[in-house]
Simulated assay, not measured.
Amino acid sequence: MNLTITHQQGANLLLAEGTILEADFQLLADEIEKLPFTEDKYVLVDCASIRHLIKNNYGFSGYINNLLHLHAKKTSIILFGNNPQVLRLTKLLRLDHILYFAPTLDEAYTLLNKALIGRAAEATGEYA
């Protein structure tokens, strides 16, 4: 896994790209713990190799459990590069209201920017 941590528009962004193993989720959780509790946290997770990981390592339930563990740390999660099977399973589990999905990394950034703009507008009272 390649992990990039940046700070933009008052929020912390963790970008996890490549093959993400079960141990990598612990690294993500550790990095989230280091960030200030009062700042928003977003994790963009590359799911391009998820099918291989689910079949050969820790299964879909282990993958979802790790995502929920990150979410419990007050972190918004955007999954990009998903296949239709993963989307169907997460919707079936009713996780589509806490996990966000984007077909590509570019679209994940677009979704993130919309969230940041909405948060900024909410903070300034521009939207009622």
Rank of each mutant, 00 (worst) to 15 (best):
residue 9 Q to P: 04
residue 95 L to I: 04
residue 85 Q to S: 08
residue 61 S to P: 00
residue 111 L to D: 04
residue 80 F to D: 04
residue 107 E to G: 02
residue 46 D to F: 03
residue 39 E to K: 11
residue 95 L to G: 10
residue 57 N to D: 15
residue 96 D to A: 05
residue 62 G to R: 07
residue 111 L to N: 06
residue 85 Q to T: 11
residue 25 F to I: 02
residue 127 Y to T: 11
residue 54 I to F: 03
residue 127 Y to A: 04
residue 3 L to H: 06
residue 103 P to K: 07
residue 44 L to S: 02
residue 109 Y to C: 03
residue 8 Q to Y: 05
residue 26 Q to R: 10
residue 117 I to S: 10
residue 86 V to P: 01
residue 110 T to A: 14
residue 52 H to W: 14
residue 37 F to L: 11
residue 102 A to F: 04
residue 101 F to S: 08
residue 19 T to R: 15
residue 113 N to V: 06
residue 93 L to Q: 11
residue 10 G to E: 05
residue 127 Y to D: 10
residue 61 S to D: 15
residue 71 H to A: 10
residue 64 I to L: 12
residue 100 Y to F: 14
residue 20 I to M: 06
residue 15 L to A: 04
residue 92 L to Y: 10
residue 86 V to F: 11
residue 67 L to P: 05
residue 123 A to D: 12
residue 106 D to W: 00
residue 74 K to D: 10
residue 99 L to K: 02
residue 61 S to G: 05
residue 66 N to I: 03
residue 35 L to Y: 04
residue 54 I to K: 02
residue 19 T to G: 00
residue 43 V to E: 02
residue 45 V to T: 07
residue 107 E to M: 09
residue 58 Y to S: 09
residue 5 I to Q: 12
residue 4 T to I: 14
residue 119 R to Y: 05
residue 82 N to H: 07
residue 89 L to F: 09
residue 42 Y to T: 05
residue 10 G to Q: 06
residue 61 S to A: 11
residue 45 V to Q: 01
residue 3 L to G: 04
residue 97 H to S: 15
residue 97 H to N: 14
residue 89 L to G: 01
residue 93 L to A: 14
residue 100 Y to A: 07
residue 41 K to C: 06
